[in-house]
Computed example of a mutant assay.
Amino acid sequence: MSAAHEPLRCDHPADYTLMPPYGGETQRGFAPTDEEIEETSRFFESGEARLDVVESYVSGNLAVLVAVERQHGVVGGSEDQDWSLRVTLVFRRAGDRWELVHRHADALVHEIPWDLFRQIAAGDVRG
């Protein structure tokens, strides 16, 4: 496997939290197995992405990025489509490097009608 196709690895501290883009409970910790990383690499087959930073904040040992991940690709066997996400990333300085301690993402890059938002908030949307 060439370096361009190796799974991306990122260190996360033990107190890392994730609010995933598809909703649900906040997840804590991040310690995927090699098998899970390989499975994720197969699920996200192809695509391109760029990070558009809307705003950044730094105070002491904390940094926050408010951004939009503009991306498209073939995911889970779908056709190539827009998979852009609004994201908030919180980093904490750990010695001479920065750790990602929190990620909140959602797919609401494109505005949705109020009634659909109400249904989603109420848990009334069935897949």
Rank of each mutant, 00 (worst) to 15 (best):
M1G: 13
S2R: 12
A3N: 13
A4H: 09
P7D: 04
P7V: 06
C10G: 07
D11W: 13
A14L: 11
D15S: 10
L18Y: 14
P21W: 15
P21T: 14
Y22S: 12
G23D: 12
A31R: 14
T33W: 14
E35Q: 13
I37K: 13
E38N: 05
E39P: 08
R42A: 06
L51D: 10
E55L: 05
Y57Q: 06
S59P: 00
N61D: 15
L62K: 01
H72A: 12
G73T: 01
V74C: 01
G76K: 02
G77H: 02
G77C: 00
S78T: 10
E79K: 07
D80E: 13
D82A: 00
D82M: 01
S84R: 02
S84H: 01
V87H: 06
L89E: 07
V90M: 00
R93K: 03
R93C: 07
A94N: 07
W98V: 02
L100W: 08
L100H: 05
V101K: 03
H102G: 07
H102E: 14
R103K: 12
A107N: 08
L108I: 10
V109Q: 02
P113I: 02
D115C: 00
D115K: 14
L116T: 04
L116F: 06
F117H: 13
A122Y: 02
D124T: 03
D124L: 12
V125M: 06
G127A: 13
G127Y: 08
